[in-house]
Computed example of a mutant assay.
Amino acid sequence: MNDEINYTNNPLHGLGLQELLTQIVDHYGFEILYAYLNINCFKTNPSIESSVKFLKKTEWAREKVEIFYLYQYKNLPRVSSEQFELPPRKRIIPEGQTPREPAELSFEDAERVREKQAKKAAEHGKSKRYKEREFENLWKR
């Protein structure tokens, strides 16, 4: 029962991958998604259907998109360190925190984020989890 209550405090609860993608593509477009996420399904002949097919098979990419949805499109505040370690669909949004207007994104900001990621990765090694943490931290304010 406790898990049911917790999951309802997550904007991803009950939201299918196709609907999630439709929302962020309608708002940002495939070009911005590729610029920020660097996932080829958003660059080469992008479509909702082909992207959903790829993301269903590729956990790391799906989590990257879900993180983008939570912290850019829903513009949620930073999560606690305990929640940070959980996959996006298992995170609990604290009571009283509600989604805000989607973040304003630009190609210039995407390039700055990529440069910052590359610099941090070079400084601290290239472990997968480190890159994922940095990816999330770059968007949190």
Rank of each mutant, 00 (worst) to 15 (best):
P102Q: 03
E108K: 11
P99Q: 12
S80F: 04
P102M: 10
R89T: 08
P94C: 01
K116M: 09
R78G: 04
A110L: 09
Q97K: 10
G96I: 06
K120P: 01
V113E: 10
P102E: 10
I92A: 03
F84K: 07
G96V: 03
Q117Y: 04
S106C: 04
R78P: 00
E104C: 11
L76F: 04
R112V: 10
A110S: 11
E123G: 00
T98A: 10
L86Y: 02
Q83W: 03
K119Y: 13
F107E: 13
K119F: 08
S106G: 11
S80Y: 04
Q117H: 05
E101I: 04
Q83R: 02
A103Q: 14
L86P: 00
K90N: 15
S81M: 10
E85R: 03
A121D: 07
S106L: 04
R112N: 11
R91S: 07
E111H: 09
P87S: 14
L76G: 09
P87M: 11
K119M: 13
E101F: 03
P102H: 02
Q97V: 13
F107Q: 11
Q117M: 15
E82S: 15
L76T: 01
L105V: 13
E108D: 14
V79F: 06
A110Q: 03
E104P: 00
E85Q: 09
A103M: 15
V79H: 08
E115N: 09
A121P: 00
Q83L: 08
L76E: 02
K90S: 15
E108L: 11
R91Q: 14
Q83D: 13
S106D: 12
